[in-house]
Design a protein around this nucleic acid. Structure first.
Length: 256
DNA sequence: ATGGTTGCCTCGCAA
């Protein structure tokens, strides 16, 4: 305990039946949601509270939006990733629950690269690394989870050549992700599963799901004190095959 | 074969 999951739901309103079904089935203690795509007052608080979850939300109209659900209260909530006061995107949320500092992040996609959007992605990743370093210095359990929009290694996609020029797989993107690992963080899925081609996202287009042409871009990065307690992790792949599915599926870990 | 799909909310943009 606790079981901590991350899921890019691609609109909490469009996905509500799927989200409620999965919460009842998977019974996570803490859930990091991305791309809620609604303002805070439009968040389905009533339905989710009915399943026993506290909420912290940081929404935005139409785009982005993050939320944290927890079976225990959420304390010391912060909605800002430090380092750029002018950044208005709702992409970050941090709170303490179950004695763990959890960070819910929706890292910028960055396409097309090169360009302004890619510059924003790299700047955002530098800010994230700075925050990761601060949190690690506290020597407490930290889980930084979310849609990283980073394919860490060639084996995390079907066809590396097809992704060669993409912002999700460019060498500079992967280097920025590895910087988080070098700071002492562990990829909770990869730590326990060595097999290649385990994905968390399949595009809606080109029959990507049917052909199993996906990518692994949703990650849970654990501080050393959290990694010490890591007992299980997984990807709830079958969720992608359901009616009205998100293009992402939940990724989870259990800390003893 | 530079296509195709989804969700937002306006008919284009982001993913």
């Amino acid at each position: 305990m606790p079981k901590i999951a991350t899921w890019n739901v691609n609109s909490i309103k469009a996905r509500l039946p799927n989200v409620l079904d999965w919460l009842k089935q998977a019974e996570p203690d803490v859930v990091l949601l991305q791309e809620t795509k609604c303002q805070d007052e439009a968040f389905p608080h009533f339905e989710i509270e009915a399943l026993g979850y506290h909420r912290a939300v940081h929404g935005q109209k139409s785009y982005n939006g993050v939320a944290i659900l927890s079976k225990q209260p959420l304390e010391e909530v912060s909605q800002r990733l430090p380092g750029d006061e002018a950044d208005a995107h709702a992409r970050y949320l941090e709170a303490t629950t179950f004695g763990v500092r959890v960070c819910c992040l929706y890292l910028p996609n960055g396409n097309p690269a090169p360009g302004e959007k890619y510059d924003y992605k790299l700047a955002w990743m530098a800010r994230l690394a700075a925050r990761a370093e601060q949190l690690r210095a506290d020597e407490r359990p930290v889980v930084m989870g979310g849609d990283y929009n980073v394919i860490p290694e060639p084996e995390d996609c079907h066809d590396p050549a097809a992704w060669a020029g993409d912002a999700l797989f460019l060498p500079e993107t992967r280097r920025a992700f590895r910087r988080l690992l070098w700071l002492g963080y562990t990829d909770a899925f990869r730590a326990l599963h060595g097999e290649p081609h385990r994905y968390s996202f399949w595009d809606y287009q080109r029959g990507a799901w049917q052909a199993d042409e996906g990518i692994r871009i949703d990650h849970l990065l654990l501080s050393p004190q959290a990694t010490d307690r890591l007992s299980a992790s997984g990807i709830d792949r079958e969720v992608r095959g359901r009616e009205k599915a998100s293009d992402h599926v939940p990724v989870w870990c259990v800390l003893e």
